[in-house]
Amino acid sequence: MTAWVKIALLEDIPRLGARVVKSARGNIAVFRTGEDQVYALHDRCPHKGGPLSQGIVHGAWVTCPLHGWTIGLPDGCAMAPDQGRTSCFEVKVEDGLVWLKL
């Protein structure tokens, strides 16, 4: 069964940064962009499993800290010419609270 779970205040996630949610399905990185959009991806880079949460966020992208692949936040797809995809999770922000669908 899936349900929305409350995870944090929006302000707990740094702008152009991320926090990590520990779930039964592995770590989930929750990102916040410069315009306060929030996205959630499995915290594993499609290249060699690097923790995307630790990368640099720019536009709607994150650059993996290990070897510099750049991953799209809305769809988890690597920027060409790299190929690969990380799974995404649904997130929403309501009244300054961030919810994750698990």
Partner: peptide
């Protein structure tokens, strides 16, 4: 890390 209560 942020802990969550997983849905059952």
């Amino acid at each position: 890390l942020i802990p969550v209560e997983e849905p059952a």
